[in-house]
Design a protein around this nucleic acid. Structure first.
Lengths: 343, 343
DNA sequence: TTTGCATGCGCAGTCGGTTGCACAGGCTCA
DNA sequence: TGAGCCTGTGCAACCGACTGCGCATGCAAA
């Protein structure tokens, strides 16, 4: 087969006109006569002509490639998110250059640099949990590459961001637990340097206060998200003089490690102590002890919004707009109550 | 900041040489004098010059973009696979254009066409379970776009493929069950049109025969991979006069649906009936009833091999090699026995 | 008849590299 | 001393599209 892809030149040759005429005819330039325009369009259709996007991007000094860096794609939260990103990217003829940091800041730096070398037009990133400084990401500013932070956003306000308002969600969560009659509500939070943890903690404190309960910091533990660290946190809570009767965990993965450990300690999960969590992953439905409630954070919608935001930023870059206006999009989470009976 | 990226032209201007000299100096062309070569390389380093890959690819009529189409990225098997693909792609400066078929052949066609329009240099695809004809994929041949089928490979031999030998794995699985003392071994297979199902079934039949057992097709059911269909299959097996005491399921997702249903029917999972499966997904460790054994199919390694294969094919394309030689890579699976006590 | 303007189209440069070919200068060897 | 060769460098075309500018032609108004 091996049919040569038709170019604008080929059309010009066949119609005995110049390439510029063909180019203008195809883009409805007013100075091209109607007859010529139609002849060109007709032949273009017959030949199945499709403009070479690479050539156009090259001329425009664009790649139409957007970098996406996530910690782990195998986590359902992130794979849902990338699905949303992908959908919008395909619609707008953008290509995704995808990379994982595996929650390691050094690997993250490598990937960021690889993407810079590939001259991505923009970057969507959910930083690794070990990323405390953002220099390597902010350096992209020097190359005029806009960045959107996603889900895990930096504490600083000087960044474009899409995130879920877990502060509000956590207040709602605590309120729900209170209404169910629980009073000793513990919290296993994530690494305390990251914004996701800060928001949860603030929501927790606010939620507890609104119910006129006393905030007891003994009930708040942290995990670095590894299985061992999570189990340590559970152990400490169980060892309290007055152990909690409800535990909120950082996310469903932490939840799974936590209840697995609690189960081993002969705690009747969701009876002796009830567990609630964040993320609302479908997979938890299959687990031995799903969370009684989980906060849906709409990762797909977050991905869509992040992609739309980066597209907007990349377009504004051309327009040479004002300095230092940062975009921010917030998604409101929903507390999903599981319909199941604990064993 | 907004530092202009240095070009070859800029270097030429500063050193008062021509761009061709700079280009050749940087690529160690033998006709360039040592002194000139060093001056050029020196300045290139100082300016942090990095060649514009887009320009080079454009000249070479390549995009360095590889399309990857998978059914669902949220399935751990596929997200592991894409990690392997990504790793090799980053190393070789390839970009991934990623798309999901959501196991729907119509969506798959759309994505394939979008990728063709974007002029991907090659395609890695794991076809949807509703893909029975491959015309839309084979059409890429007309555009000289090589295709590698991955995991779910077509029955026809006329295709490049990377897959796991589940035929052998299934024989091993049946043998293991036999050695554990099980004699009525049932099988819940996937859609019977796809190669993955055919290989499993053949392996099952061969495995049963090798143990001098009689193949009883009453013990073989199919599921279209939906929860309902899987539950129907389990129900039929449970309703047999002589129900099975071991059930092999198509993969870990089918397994989860199957044991969830069996549990509801008051079957003591992995006591009354033991369950074994394919994929060995980490997530099953958290579920109420993990498979007693699962066949590890090494999706990451499969992804790596697929990417390496497509790179090889894309390079051969230039070399105008012989017609119709198809590459094939097989991975041997491993039966992983779970270390846990059923409840 | 000349001027002026609208219409229709082509030339050539541009983006950032690569590459075939030409050419100048110096050297060696018959 | 001239033929032939090697070395070092530049010119210009090329990839596929876009685009500023200029040049015809035709027609209407002066």
């Amino acid at each position: 087969m091996n049919q040569k892809l038709p170019t604008i030149k080929e059309i010009a040759r066949r119609l005995n006109v110049s390439v510029s005429t063909v180019s203008r005819a195809l883009s409805d330039h007013p100075r091209i006569g109607a007859a010529t325009r139609e002849r060109v369009k007709q032949l273009a259709k017959e030949l199945n002509y499709e403009p070479n996007a690479q050539a156009i991007f090259f001329k425009q000094k664009k790649t139409h490639v957007v970098g996406v860096i996530l910690p782990y794609i195998r986590e359902e939260f992130f794979s849902e998110a990338i699905s949303g990103i992908e959908m919008v990217a395909l619609e707008h003829e953008y290509t995704i250059l995808f990379g994982q940091s595996y929650d390691d800041v050094e690997k993250e730096k490598e990937v960021v640099n690889a993407m810079r070398r590939q001259r991505v037009d923009g970057l969507i990133i959910s930083p690794s949990k070990t990323t405390l400084r953002y220099d390597h990401i902010e350096a992209l500013d020097n190359y005029d590459i806009p960045v959107v932070y996603f889900d895990r956003v930096p504490l600083s306000e000087k960044a474009n961001r899409v995130y879920c308002n877990v502060y509000q969600g956590t207040i709602e969560m605590v309120g729900w637990l209170f209404n169910q009659g629980y009073r000793r509500i513990a919290f296993i939070n994530g690494p305390d340097k990251i914004a996701a943890s800060r928001d949860r903690l603030n929501g927790y404190i606010e939620g507890i206060s609104r119910q006129k309960l006393k905030v007891d910091m003994q009930l708040v533990e942290n995990t670095d998200l590894t299985k061992e660290s999570t189990q340590d946190a559970v152990a400490k809570l169980l060892a309290l003089k007055q152990p909690p009767n409800a535990i909120i965990t950082f996310n469903d993965y932490v939840h799974m490690d936590a209840v697995q450990y609690a189960d081993k300690q002969h705690i009747k999960v969701n009876r002796d102590i009830i567990f609630v969590s964040y993320a609302n992953l479908p997979i938890t439905a299959y687990t031995a002890n799903p969370p009684l409630a989980s906060l849906e954070q709409y990762p797909y919608a977050q991905g869509e919004k992040a992609m739309k935001m980066i597209i907007r930023l990349m377009n504004e870059k051309n327009a040479e707009t004002q300095e230092a206006v940062f975009l921010s999009e917030e998604i409101l989470p929903t507390l999903v109550i599981n319909q199941y009976q604990p064993r």
